[in-house]
Design a protein around this nucleic acid. Structure first.
Lengths: 273, 273
DNA sequence: ATCAGAATTGCGCAATACGGAATGCATTTT
DNA sequence: AAAATGCATTCCGTATTGCGCAATTCTGAT
């Protein structure tokens, strides 16, 4: 059995269900009971019972006897997750266009605590591309938009973040030094865009911008992810333009380029996802 | 609810979990335990235990003590549902553009047995609009694309469908007569588009077209849904054009307008979703 | 401070979900 | 053609698990 950390509330059947769904998510094609049982370590009869119960509610579907896949109910619930629904709707067409223009993956992220969470994406049709899993997370200091987010709270905020997280290293390029991180973030914020040079994953480079709503608050981040050798600095204005277009849909009036108007950036409320 | 045939495989905890998630999906804002327990008829302590277990896996999230909402895991799994993934990806930008052009909701549907299932949508930013829930279903004979799908199997196929389902009535305009349905469907198929005149829901009108893949097989349906008084016949060519553009992305070479090339439409394998 | 009202947690018990065994259904092997 | 293999699926007695009551803690309002 799963030996949970101390006395958290856990329900065996739900843990097993989660294992089954995760296993199914790893396959692109319908999976047989045999593989699911093996992957999850569950007794076949147990796995079968749970899958059948899930199928009654549409969480999984049985296509042909003995071939299971994730069901339409998950599609429905996934679309009901109201994490940043407004931003997502405003961003989607713009993301699709940007993706087509430059031929690389475009991601929309929200902030959740000390992480960004990927909530929407547009991926090009080419063979080699960078693909983030919707719903997955990444720490702020290893992503382009994450660094912009950090800069919003100033050097003190970055120091606090560093203390909380310890700036774990992900690749050779990850910024693990508070001073370097602070400098990089502040410069990036001033320019209006940030880069990620293989700081989260080797071989992957990003360009990121922030998106503000009508009240001037940062509500999301937009980024392009590409194999590092394909990434071009010429895309930077395109990304900025796209982010601005989304912000405009949300009612944000961009300030005159030079002066910062009235964004009390010191202590922005973090939208808990 | 969908009353499944009396299969005896059921798990109490999973049924209850489903009730809880459904209840949460009905709310836009985070919900308190009290309401969830009341809505589902569960004992508060039971609801709390199940929610906590779900939260451990990210299916729900607790924002502030005692405020629950659907979690990011559902986003992730929803995006992993590979129901027509290729079509969805090809369709999305086209759908967004069509939606912007005509200012009404655009839906992408797949066929699942005797129903269509909504898998993707683009909705305009206007106040009054038609909105289908992603993942929901509707019978073939009350939707525009559904009728086109029926026509694919010829009069015999329509008769069989009528026998299976009994052509249940949804509104005053629902076609409940086999002959009328057959005539309507065949004419629609010949024109290349179908209408839905308040046949599924009062006040809602649709224009639908089919989308074929490289092998000439019908893989999805594209439709525009609008309040009936706003719907314009001028949109028909736009919808057809959009459907063609998606089909082109999937490799379908449209036949010369007059002759039907080589689509063995008699017994097309129905893609089980 | 005091006090509701609600959210949590602990606990003993009965219903529940477990998993081994039996059955059924194809496909392959002899 | 018959037998055997490999699965999926169903059955069923039983130990485990999840249940709901009740007690406790927490939160916010008076």
């Amino acid at each position: 059995m799963i030996s949970s950390p101390p006395v958290q509330t856990a329900i065996q059947v739900i843990d097993r269900m989660a294992r089954l769904l995760d296993a199914m998510a790893r396959y692109a094609e319908p999976v047989s009971l045999k593989y699911l049982a093996a992957d999850t370590g569950l007794h076949p009869s147990t796995a079968h019972r749970i899958l059948s119960a899930l199928a009654r509610h549409g969480y999984v579907e049985r296509v042909e006897p003995a071939a299971w896949q994730l069901g339409a109910k998950l599609l429905e619930l996934g679309h009901r997750v109201h994490v940043g629904l407004d931003v997502r709707r405003a961003a989607r067409p713009v993301m699709d266009r940007l993706c087509e223009e430059i031929g690389e993956s475009v991601n929309l992220t929200l902030r959740a605590g000390d992480e960004v969470i990927y909530v929407e994406r547009a991926t090009p049709a080419r063979a080699i591309r960078v693909e983030q899993v919707i719903g997955s997370r990444a720490p702020l200091h290893v992503t382009a938009v994450g660094k912009l987010w950090l800069a919003e709270h100033g050097p003190a905020g970055i120091a606090a973040y560093a203390r909380r997280t310890g700036l774990p290293r992900y690749t050779r390029n990850t910024l693990t030094d508070v001073q370097t991180l602070t400098d990089t973030a502040l410069v990036a914020a001033q320019r209006g865009y940030a880069l990620d040079d293989e700081e989260a994953e080797p071989g992957v480079g990003c360009i990121g911008c922030l998106i503000r709503d009508a009240g001037g608050r940062v509500v999301a981040g937009l980024s392009v992810s590409a194999p590092i050798e394909r990434r071009q600095t010429a895309w930077i204005p395109l990304v900025q333009e796209a982010a601005d277009r989304i912000a405009a849909k949300l009612g944000y009036m961009a300030a005159a380029p030079a002066a910062d108007v009235a964004a009390p950036a010191s202590d922005v409320a973090v939208p808990t996802v």
